[in-house]
Amino acid sequence: MNAIIESRNLKLWYGDHQVLKSISMEIPEHEITALIGPSGCGKSTFLKTLNRMNDLVGNVRITGEVNYNGKNIYSPEVDVTKLRREIGMVFQKPNPFPMSIYENVAYGPKTHGIRSKTELDGIVEESLKASALWEEVKDRLKTSALGLSGGQQQRLCIARAISVHPSVILMDESTASLDPVSTGKIEDLLMELKSQYTVIMVTHNMQQAVRISDRCAFFLMGELVESGSTEQLFAKPQDKRTEAYITGRFG
């Protein structure tokens, strides 16, 4: 197993409140890893430590390491903008910018210095095709992204995330606010994307974790209780608490 991201003894506090208690886990390349657990268990917080989005929140203290391709992303010489380009993120609620569909996708590449119109056109088309949105929007690229449906908006956000060619995509309950049809489309999309990208997703939906993830990690009260292949974790959980959760006894 080739781990692209690895966390070691990762601890995180908001003020005095410890949210993550020494998380150590490895995330393999080109697979879908699902983080599951009840609300407030720390899975979303953990996800956000992986591209340092927690830096944006004040009053956070982090110890331990997160290694991306063998290098600690919390070491001082790391360029956070470069890191976030390589580890992209799709959020819980679709959050397209209030601009045109085209501009939404082109924003990332422009941020990283691409100015040529033809090149941008290429990236936009390629990203929208990769997120299976191209056919639906190719005739109205210049219209506002806010006019799209929720599911389309979320696929646009995925297109936006892959427009900068990341190697990892973090998804924070990215289908939670969508209807089943849109959710299905995005799940299909993720299955296709995993050949090129490593996907780490937080989900509340255990069926979803079973359907599409290769590996699964169960969080409870800031602890990583158990992680392993999805099949194994759901068939033969090692820990009582995992069993209790996946059989629906709490959560």
């Binding site: 591209n51 989005m53 944006l56 903008t81 470069k82 890191l83 976030r84 380009r85 992209g88 993120m89 959020f91 609620k93 959050n95 397209p96 910018f97 209030p98 924003y107 990332g108 941020t111 990283h112 956000c157 936006r160 995330a161 427009s163 900068v164």
Partner: peptide, 18 residues
């Protein structure tokens, strides 16, 4: 302005100024 816009932009690797 919703924070989600800022998050999305930072998530793409954009700096604060941009």
């Amino acid at each position: 302005v919703p924070d989600s816009y800022r998050e999305a932009s930072f998530g793409l690797g954009a700096g604060k100024l941009r």
